[in-house]
Each structure stands twice: as C-alpha cells, then as structure tokens.
Simulated assay, not measured.
Amino acid sequence: MQVLRKLLFPISLIYGIIVFLRNRLYDVGIFSSTSFTTKTICVGNLSVGGTGKTPMIELLVRTLSDNHEVAILSRGYKRKSQGFLLSDDKTSVENLGDEPFQLKSKFPKVAVAVDVDRRNGIHQLEKMVDPDVILLDDAFQHRKVKPEFSILLTAYDSLFTKDWYLPTGDLRDSKREANRAEVIVVTKCPSNLSQSEKSKVLLSIKPKSHQKVFFSYLVYNTDLKGAEISLESLKDKKVTLVTGIANPAPLENFLKSYGIVFDHLRFNDHHFFTPTEIENLKRKDTILTTEKDYVRLRSKIPNLHYIEVKHEFLFGENELFKEELKQFMSKNS
C-alpha cells in the first residue's frame, strides 16, 4: 500500500494545487464565506483519519451546555437521508449518521442536526432552535461558512506538519490553513508526554501569536456500557473487538496494556454492517466495540459492550482550555 501511495505522488501534486487555488479564491473574496449572528465553533482537522473530533464535540457540550443553549451541526456522513434533518427521539441512526446519533443519544436535550450544506444547516437551526452557540463538527475545510472560533485537531503520532497531500499522504487541506485556527489541540498524546517532547511538537507546529496549543490524551472508561460490567471482568473471557473507526490503534494498545486478550475484526470507518456480518457477530461470545459502532449494532447483537473515551488535557491545561471557551462566549458577536 505504501509503495502504491508513493507511485501516486503526481496525483497528490495536482490535488495540492487544486486545494491551494480553492483556498486562495476564498482568501481574496472570489469565493464567499458567510458569517452568522449565532456564535459558531468549528472542530476539524487537515488530514483524513481519526483525530478525536467526536470526543472533542462531547467535551465542548459538557463545558458549554450548563450555561448556554448548544446545538450541533454535522454532515451526517454515510446517512441514508437527504438535506437538512433535525433529530428527535424517533430519528434512526441510518438517517442521522453514526456520530450525530451517538451525540444525540448521549445528550438528548441538545439539538443535533445534519446537512451537507452547512450554511443552510445553520440558517435552519437559527430558525428552529435559536441556540446560543452551534458546534460545527468536522467543518474546518468547509470554507463557505466563516466560524467565529476554530479548533484544529492533529494526532500526536501523525502531525499535519509532517504529512503530505492525498493520495500519497493523508492531508486533505493545506498545512498553511492551520493559521485560521484559534486553538490547536494535539490529540492522542502519550499520557506521560514530557516537556521536552512537548517543545519538539511546538517547534514543528510553529503556532502564530493568536493561537493557543493544547495537548490531550485519550482516557478509556473501564466501566463498560451496554451492559454494566467492568473491563476487568473480560480478562478471562473470549473477546472479539469490533471497530469501524479510522484509527483503532490507540484502543488496541490500551486493551493490550490492560491485559485483555482479543481477536480484532476491523472494518472501514462508518461501516454499516451487512446481514451476513451481523449473523457472524451473533456467534461471538463477547463483543467489545466503540461507542460509534455500538449505535449501529446495539439492537442486533447480544453480548455487546462498548468502551467510552474522552479527552483529558496534559500539563494541567483543562481549566485553561475551558477559560478559552468562556472568553469566546463572553465576547459580543
């Protein structure tokens, strides 16, 4: 696969030129970006693959929802519905998409909507919900909307600064677009990241004067959901790990470090399981999966458990991050 990606280098050059020209047309105003009266916070990345966008949205909801009316707008990738859809208690995972459905299940009082057209989605939410703030999930490269506050995520082991354009690399946008972010979060760091390693990353990113950089690691909840048991109780069981996420490596590493022995059935990101796959999974003794996969499987598979994950900030930065959000919300639009 790596050899093939290198052979496709000429295509990545063409892709990079197209990306540059597109961004340049927005920069000079030939393509227009729309601003909104409702506060908007964009969460996204420059590369394809998992950087922890959904756990970051969850963190923002937990931080903001006590004092503000929060709404979430997502594309709803691979959903079976079309156009704008505001979820309710009857909306299915197939029509909403797995990640928005996960968010709605976890935060039932928060308005969760999907629309490929982000501008229309924001207009509809302003009209139907009138929230204090709209969280734009995976929208950093969608420049038709000009968010007031942008959070750019980049994974510690695959920094955007060391990446290259698709298909040779994983970049879907230009590295220089990182300058549009107010906050950069380096996710999936080792929990024991040293100050010297932090300094090396900062030298690689070279943040601008207006930018704050935070470092986070993933924390897995050892009290499993789906059925209330502990991860400890799985040590003597025959476990099958089922994942349909972009990068399951951190979860794999955590389970191995915890002493869980498992077979891993790995599927593509946002995978919707076929009837044959479901029947195969039903024959497994104990299935452990991610929360995103659980929302697609929960009514179909017995002995199904999922493990929650969240971001925690290193170097005592939890309160500093919350203070950034508080300052943004206190500003007049």
Rank of each mutant, 00 (worst) to 15 (best):
L325M: 00
L7K: 14
I278M: 01
R176N: 15
A139F: 07
S191I: 13
F267T: 14
Q211R: 09
L64Q: 12
F328R: 12
L46H: 08
A227N: 14
E58M: 07
K235T: 15
L153Q: 13
G259H: 07
N45I: 09
F315H: 04
L136W: 03
V145D: 06
K188G: 12
I134Y: 12
V3F: 11
I287S: 00
P250Y: 06
R296V: 04
K188P: 09
C189Q: 14
K284Q: 15
L103K: 03
F254Y: 15
K284T: 05
Q195N: 04
R62A: 12
F313A: 03
K331Y: 00
L251D: 01
N253Y: 08
Y165D: 07
F315Y: 10
I184P: 13
F160P: 06
L297Y: 05
F315I: 13
F272V: 14
H210F: 08
K198I: 13
K144T: 15
R143S: 11
R296G: 01
P131W: 01
E182G: 09
R143D: 09
K144Y: 07
D89T: 14
I14M: 08
V110H: 09
L288D: 02
V48K: 01
D223H: 12
E323L: 12
T286W: 01
I57H: 06
V183S: 13
L25V: 05
S209F: 05
H305T: 09
K300M: 06
I287W: 00
E69Q: 14
D138H: 08
R119P: 00
E197W: 06
T289G: 02
K208A: 10
T40Q: 02
I57T: 12
I14T: 07
I41V: 06
T54P: 02
R5G: 04
I245P: 01
T54A: 02
L241W: 09
L152F: 07
P167I: 11
K238H: 13
L46C: 11
L46I: 10
D130I: 00
M56P: 07
L86P: 01
V295Q: 04
M56H: 03
P250D: 04
T286S: 13
G316M: 00
F313H: 01
T276N: 06
G121N: 11
Q141P: 10
P250T: 09
S330M: 06
S158V: 00
K200H: 10
K237N: 00
D27L: 09
N280A: 11
G29I: 08
K106M: 01
T286M: 11
Q141V: 10
R118H: 00
E99K: 01
L153E: 13
E58T: 03
D88N: 15
V185Q: 15
R296K: 05
N45Y: 05
L135T: 14
T286G: 05
L255R: 12
L13G: 03
N120V: 11
E279R: 09
T34M: 08
D98N: 11
T286D: 04
T276Q: 09
I72F: 01
R62P: 00
E279L: 04
H305E: 06
D117W: 06
R176G: 10
L234A: 05
G49D: 08
V110R: 08
D285F: 03
F36L: 08
Y165H: 15
